[in-house]
Write a protein that binds this DNA or RNA. Sequence first.
RNA 1: GCCCCCUUCGUCUAGCCAGGUCUAGGACACAGGCUUUUCAUGCCUGCGACACGGGUUCGAAUCCCGUAGGGGGUACCA
Length: 541
Amino acid sequence: MVVTRFAPSPTGYLHIGGARTALFCLLMARHNGGKFLLRIEDTDQKRNTPTATQQVMDDLRWLGIIWDEGPDCGGPNGPYKQSERLEIYNRYIQQLIDTGKAYYCFDTTEELQEMREEAQAQKRQFLYRRPETLPTAQEAAQARAEGRDVVVRMIMPDSDIVVNDLVRGEVVFPAGTFSDFVIQKSDGFPTYHLACVVDDELMQVTHIVRGQEHLMNTPSHQVLQDALGFRRPTYAHMSVTVSEGGGKLSKRERSKTLAKAIIDNPALDKASLAAAGELTLEQLEDYLSGNSTPDSPQITAMAEHIGLHLPEINVVDFKAAGYLPEALVNFIALLGWSSPTGQEIMTFDELIKNFDSSRFNKTNSLFDRKKLASFNTEHMKMVSKDKLLGYFKEFLALRDSAMAKFDDNMLAEILRVSEGARTLEDVENKCAFLLISADNMAFDPKAVQKVLLKDSADVILEEVKARFIALADWNKTDLHKVIEDMCTERQLGMGKVAQPIRVAITGTTVSPAIDESLVLLGRAESIKRIAKTIEYVRSVR
RNA sequence: GCCCCCUUCGUCUAGCCAGGUCUAGGACACAGGCUUUUCAUGCCUGCGACACGGGUUCGAAUCCCGUAGGGGGUACCA
C-alpha cells in the first residue's frame, strides 16, 4: 500500500509551495488507492505559532486536500504532532548512542562559529570533527550539570552515499562531504532529521514527495534509516516554484515587497501607516531596517493602507483574491508535472486519475498569475452553480464585502450575469454598482467624457426614462425591447443607447448586459439614477 | 568558498531515457481580426524556443565533455 504524508511545520499560513507539495503527496496516494497523512512537525519551539496548525488544516481542506490520518482525526500510528512524541524519539536516540552510532557533544555556539569561519577562510567545506574518544554519558551529565548545552550528533560514514530519486535518478554524494549532524538539540527536542525519519518508519510511509531543498538532507536520513534498521522509502524531490523576482517563492515575499514600497516612497506618512498595521513607530522602523517582520495580517493591513497589491503567496491570499480552489489546485499541479494525456484543464478527479509519478520534471518553474487567471475562468464555468455560490459567499465574507447582505437568489443572479468573469473579485467589482445609492453616485470622468457628453446622451436618457416609466412590468425582455425599439426608430447602434444608460446607472462603462443590470438594480433605483444623470449632464454641459 | 540540482517560445510545458517521423507540438501571455449593447467570454490568424562551445554519429533538442547562467543546500530551521 502506498502511504504518503504532508509534514508542515506550523509557522504560519499554508503557502502555495506547501500546498503544491501536499497536493502531490495526496495525488500519489489517491492514484494508487493508498493513504495520505498529515503530520505536524513542531520540533522547533521558537518558531511555532499557536494558530498555525488550524490555519494550515483549514487551507488544506478548502483546497480539497483531505487526509486519512492526522492530528485532528487521529489514526493507528499517532499522535501526529511531533511535540507529543518526544519519548518515542528519545528511545531511538538512546538506541543510537548505546550502539555507538551517535554521541554527545557540548560545543558552544561560539566555538562552532569559529570552526565554520576557519573552514570558510581555507575555502573548504565545514565538517564537524568528532573527538578521538567520544564523551561518555557521565561526562555529558556532568557538562549538563555545569550548565553547558549538550546535543547528540550522528556519526556519518566516510563513504559515498547514493540517493535514488524518482525525479532525479541516481544522485551520488561523494565520501568526505558529510558532517556529523545533530539529532537531539540541547532543549531535549529531536531535530527535524531524526523525528522525520522515525515517524516515516512508524507511520509506514512508503513515498516521500518533497521539495528539492530536502535533497541534501537525504543522505543523512538514509544513514539514520540504516542505523535504526528501518525500511527505505521511495524519494521524489520536486523542483521548486520560483517567483518573478527570482529565488524561491517564499513567505517573506510579501513583507519584502511592502518594505521596498515604503522605503521607495519617502513621502509616506509613517505614523498613520504604523497605526494601520497596529504597530508602534519603532516597530515599523525596526521592520524597515530589516530587523523584524510583522505578522501576516499586519502586512496586509499596511499594504491596503497605501493601496499596494502584494503578490499572493499564501493560500488564503488567493482565496481573498477570488480564485477557486479547483483552479488553484489544477494550476499548481502543472508546475513541475504534466499529464500523460496532455490535458491541462482538469478536475480533482481527473488529476487523481491522470497522476503519474514518472512525469515530474526537474526544472524550477515560475508562478505565472496570468495563466492562473485563465485557469480560474475555466473552472468558474465548470463548477456547479451551487458550488460557485458557496465559494462566492465565502469570498464575500472573507473580504467583509457589503455584497454579503444579498440573499442567495440575488447572489446567484449576480453570478449568472457575470458569466465569463476571471475571478470572484471581478464579479464583485462588476456588480459593485448595486451597492451604492443614487444620492452618492460617482461618475468615472472618462465615462462622462466618452459617453455622457457625446451626442445627445441627455435627450436619449430623457426618452429612455419616459419609456421605462411607462413600462407595465420590469423584466429583461421588455427592457430589451424598449432599447431595441429606440435603436430602430432613431437608426442608432445598440451602443448609442445602451452605453448612456449604463453610465447613468453604474457611473462606469463596465457592467453586465444592460438589461440584466437594470433588472438587478430594480425599477425605482434605475429610474432615479437616470433622472439624476440627466440633471448632472445638463449641469456640466 | 564548498557541495548538489537544473537549462526547449516572454511564461508553464511535450519531445530527451530506447538519436532520424521535429521545417520542435500544446497551453497561457502578446499582436491582429471576427462575434458583441460595455467589460469579459467565444471563435480565427499571427508572433515566438532546443543557453553557448566542442565531440560521437550518415544523422543530435535527444548521447558525451567543457563553458556560461539559474536554483537549492551549507543551522542545536524545517
